[in-house]
């Protein structure tokens, strides 16, 4: 498995993702956003950060980078794509995942550890995990997941909800919702399960930083 870590102008979690890959012994390479090909790669990571300074709407300007045509084609052919934080915002703006990430409902940048309930989805990146509660940090100002009622039903019906904000005891309720996300959604995947977007940072929960991030990254081990 060879992983492409895409770098846009303003990406700042690229080295964190590389660190996670290195810790687990996964081969990875940085790919500049002006590249047009993903030949030779088996997985694409869209890391967190503030691509294009979050101008206009977070993630929207990165959507028009040359590499995103390749990412779209790669995803449509079944290639594995994970968008973390700003990467998730880029995936929703690119319509590779439904919905949109709005400003946190308390208007604050939230940086803290959260608990996430895994939902038994069809997501490729959770296929090797047996845990149903993961602890990982979030760090975002716009992570308030929103979709229409119809889209939410569609997500539920097709096992596309991957992670939901929960309490330490695993209960999913409003108290555990840090940012106002619909249905406490922290991560979703597409219908095939090969495209995954999440606001929490699994790359900051591996090695000396934590343990539960491994539950996601280990899916990329051969």
């Amino acid at each position: 498995m060879k992983v492409a870590i895409i770098r846009f102008l303003g990406t700042n979690c690229d080295y964190d993702c590389k660190y996670a890959c290195d810790v687990l012994g996964i081969k990875s390479e940085f790919v500049w956003h002006e590249e047009t090909s993903l030949k030779g790669f088996d997985c694409v990571i869209l890391p967190g950060g503030f691509s294009y300074g979050d101008y206009l709407r977070s993630g929207v300007l990165a959507k028009f980078s040359p590499i995103m045509n390749a990412v779209r084609e790669f995803a449509n052919k079944g290639g594995y794509v994970m968008g973390i934080c700003n990467g998730f915002q880029i995936l929703t703006e690119s319509r590779l995942l439904p919905g949109v990430l709005l400003k946190n409902n308390n208007l604050r940048f939230i940086h803290k550890d959260v608990y996430l309930k895994t939902e038994g989805s069809r997501c490729y990146f959770l296929k090797d995990s047996n845990k149903n509660l993961l602890k990982m940090p979030i760090a975002h100002g716009e992570g308030n997941y929103f979709c229409t009622k119809e889209q939410l039903e569609y997500l539920k019906d097709n096992d596309m909800i991957v992670l939901r904000y929960a309490s330490e005891d695993g209960s999913v309720d409003e108290d555990a919702n840090p940012n106002g996300s619909v249905f406490n959604i922290a991560g979703i995947c597409n219908e095939k399960g090969n495209v995954f977007g999440l606001m929490p940072h699994p790359e900051r929960a591996v090695g000396h930083l934590g343990i539960d991030g491994e539950e996601i990254w280990k899916s990329l081990l051969e």
Binding site: L56, R57, V60, F64, E93, G99, V100, L102, F146, C147, T148
Partner: peptide, 8 residues
């Protein structure tokens, strides 16, 4: 296509 997002 660019300035607005029709979901919201």
């Amino acid at each position: 296509k660019i300035l607005s997002n029709d979901v919201t």
